[in-house]
Simulated scan of single mutants.
Amino acid sequence: MAVYDVIVVGLGGMGSSACWQLARRGQRVLGIERFDIGHQMGSSHGLNRIIRLAYFEHPAYVPLLRRAYALWRETQELAGEQLLFITGSLDAGPAGSRVVEGSLASCAEHGLDHALLDAASVNARFPGYRLPAGHEAVYQGDGGFVASERAILAHLSLAISAGAEIHAREKVIAVEPGNGRVTVVTDRGRYEAGRVVVSAGGWISDLVPELAGKAVPERQVLGWFQPKQPALYTPARFPVSNLLTEEGHFYQFPSWGIPGFKIGLYHHLHEHGHADALSREPTEADEALLRAAVARYFPEADGPTLRLAACLFTNTEDEHFVIDRASGAPEVIVASPCSGHGFKFASVVGEILADLATDRTPPFDLSLFSLARLAA
């Protein structure tokens, strides 16, 4: 049986980053991925993911974000390709809504430069938007997006260059801790390590029993639409955004990679189930839901459909992450589920996982992400 210092199970955003951070520290690392490297079955495809510093979800995320930005810049320099794109960000919704007030709270606590704009000001400054009266938005200039698919490949390329061993198309069947070691059983063999990082996204509860019923996969759909006025939706003129409306909570990107405006809806059609059972095929109902929001709030982007793509969120009840050691098995380190807002943190979470796997204390307060809170 092959023996490693650390095995990483699942090589999406978090796992690929952990492989790189461990390998650069001289650890003997094995990364195992059930699907292809850079696959379309999980949570990180669809070209890019938003990154933003004015974090409405909780001010405790902001220190992590500051480190994430630094690591994304380091990674793109080492990889020789741009991964982080700055557009500015808008957190928008009805005046007094949780998106606006949460963003303002993070800005105030962490001294972030920002501006509070009313709907008319947003629409005039960024004419790709059509916010209704009574809405407002927090503009923060550091927001943008990370090229998520390219970032995973960059992390794994750097990891391999630093000596990591990567296995794709190999399904992990069990993670078996015991006597201070861990055995990972797959459909191709058995491997042993002192530590295992489980970052299996929508499949994490299959391997970490205490997450059963607490890490719930949900089907999401992204849409790209051809703008009527493409110049309004370039990265230079259209900041990434979160927009809370009476129809739901939407998130938006400028045209990049695919020549179309990109939009998604948190919790989409509220379709939950096992990750293997959720459809990855977009439907007319998916398209209609997204198009209605484009027509109302981004009318100059309401052109022909260019692409639809389904992905997964894996949600906890409070929609905060899990970054912790498994209960009763400190050799098993659990990363994610990220509840649909995790990829931007992948660079720093990989570093944190490497700390935990090498018995270092991460320089962050991780209490918000404890496993124990889910048992309460």
Rank of each mutant, 00 (worst) to 15 (best):
D5A: 08
D5F: 06
I7M: 06
G10H: 04
L22C: 07
G31S: 09
F35V: 01
D36R: 15
M41E: 15
G42C: 09
S43V: 09
I50C: 04
E57M: 03
Y61P: 10
Y61M: 06
P63F: 05
L71W: 03
E74W: 00
E77V: 09
E77A: 15
A79K: 05
Q82F: 02
S89R: 01
D91H: 05
A95N: 02
V100F: 00
C107A: 09
E109W: 03
H110T: 00
L116H: 07
A120N: 11
S121L: 10
S121F: 00
A124Y: 11
P127C: 13
G128E: 04
Y129Q: 02
L131N: 09
L131Y: 12
V138M: 08
A147K: 12
S148A: 15
E149C: 06
R150I: 04
A151S: 15
S157I: 03
A159M: 04
S161G: 14
G163R: 04
I166W: 08
A168W: 09
I173G: 03
P177N: 11
R181H: 08
T183M: 14
V185K: 11
D187T: 13
G189T: 12
Y191H: 13
Y191E: 00
E192K: 12
R195C: 03
R195Y: 04
V197Q: 08
V197Y: 00
I204L: 06
A212D: 09
G213W: 03
P217K: 03
F225P: 14
P227H: 12
L232M: 07
L232Q: 04
A236Q: 15
F238I: 13
V240D: 01
S241E: 01
E246N: 11
E247F: 05
G248Q: 13
Y251K: 10
Q252F: 11
W256M: 08
K262D: 06
H268E: 08
H272I: 14
H274Q: 10
D276H: 13
A277E: 15
E281P: 00
D286Y: 02
A288D: 01
L289Q: 10
Y297D: 05
E300P: 11
A301C: 11
P304N: 13
A309H: 12
A310Y: 07
F313C: 09
F313P: 04
E317H: 14
F321M: 12
I323M: 08
P330L: 06
E331S: 14
A335I: 03
A335K: 00
I352G: 06
T358G: 12
P362T: 00
P363V: 08
D365K: 01
L368S: 12
S370I: 00
R373Q: 06
L374V: 06
A375V: 02
A376M: 10
